[in-house]
Design a protein around this nucleic acid. Structure first.
Lengths: 201, 201
DNA sequence: GTCTATATAGGGATAGAC
DNA sequence: GTCTATCCCTATATAGAC
């Protein structure tokens, strides 16, 4: 770790690490302090309470997790290319941050209210952008008549779940970490293939 | 609730309810006692510790969650029918127990060791049964040459993730609980359609 | 700003009466 | 078997010295 960062940054990094791995309930302020190489009192000096520190982390992480689809879906490549690009870059993002989806889901289920304080309007923009694309493609006869919601559900399910369910699936497949990761990377092609075959005329 | 159950049963029901909703870290023995309509001391009298009580619940729940695929995949209907039956009955199971997948995943990620003490050999049987089916179908030229692992990943991902990700997806789609549930039920057809188009020659 | 020491509460677990 | 009372440790949060 870089030691020439200011204290606040060090706390945020440590908190992020511990919260994401253990969740709010499983996290001890002491562990964050240890990870950051300081004492508990400093955490409270900078962020007042565990709850407030947590909210900061959740907010940052949430923004990172909700993908920059808007960009992808307003570019001028073909619809199929957009989908392929999304799947590929999303799996790459997950490969680099495998614990984030479970973190988000776990904490949202613990306290569904946190989400209301967040930038939820972005969701509407993202959904509308995708929906517009889908409807245009159907209209033009380039894809079958499918429901945008199910397209999203199918795509993100197949991208995210293998990361979330790893502790279980790893055993079902009798693979070690490296082998399982290889499978995850393969999915960049597989998921696109599945979606493509489904929506093609 | 039925009051003419014995105490142990009452505790297990209450514990199940609270543990599944809040997870091990988020659960208080006091809340289980309140839910069961008794005092904390009794929980310890029957199960000694929170950890031991939790393990009982986890074991029971895990067995319920790991589906009876073995049955389905050793029946003598066609392969496509088996897949359709699996998807349909699995989504029904999830519809009745929507919190279970997150519970399993959350606790496995908290403590990956719990799984080793469990009936893991069953996994091998299940996987082999499916793999045998898939290989036979490919050999016979009835489906394309696909990887069993990805077939499983795609299918369970599309079935389970919409339940796990509900707190987030519900907002993305701007649906209320009833509308979202309708979508989930629709997926019995959608998921099968997607898989079918993918594996068909 | 950063530390040590401590206040205060909460939660798992047990003792002991009935 | 079931209850109340309590032990004891842990965790958040603060006070106060430097």
């Amino acid at each position: 770790m870089n030691d020439d960062k200011n204290t606040e940054e060090k706390i945020l990094n440590a908190a992020r690490q511990v919260f994401i791995e253990k969740g709010f309930d499983g996290t001890r302020m002491q562990e964050i302090a240890d990870t950051a190489g300081m004492n508990k009192a400093l955490l409270h000096y900078y962020f007042r309470s565990k709850e407030k520190l947590f909210m900061k982390i959740f907010e940052i992480t949430f923004k990172q997790f909700v993908p920059k689809m808007s960009g992808i879906f307003s570019s001028d490549t073909s619809f199929m290319d957009k989908i392929q690009l999304f799947i590929s870059s999303y799996i790459d993002l997950l490969d680099k941050n495998p614990y984030i989806p479970l973190f988000i889901i776990r904490e949202l289920s613990r306290n569904p209210n946190v989400i209301k304080e967040l930038i939820f309007d972005k969701f509407e923009i993202i959904y509308n952008a995708i929906d517009l694309n889908v409807k245009a493609e159907i209209q033009a006869g380039r894809i079958r008549d499918i429901d945008t919601k199910h397209l999203i559900l199918n795509t993100v399910s197949m991208c995210i779940f293998p990361f979330v369910g790893k502790p279980l699936l790893k055993h079902l497949f009798k693979t070690n970490d490296d082998e399982y990761r290889t499978i995850l990377i393969e999915r960049k092609n597989v998921v696109f293939e599945v979606i493509k075959k489904w929506i093609s005329i």
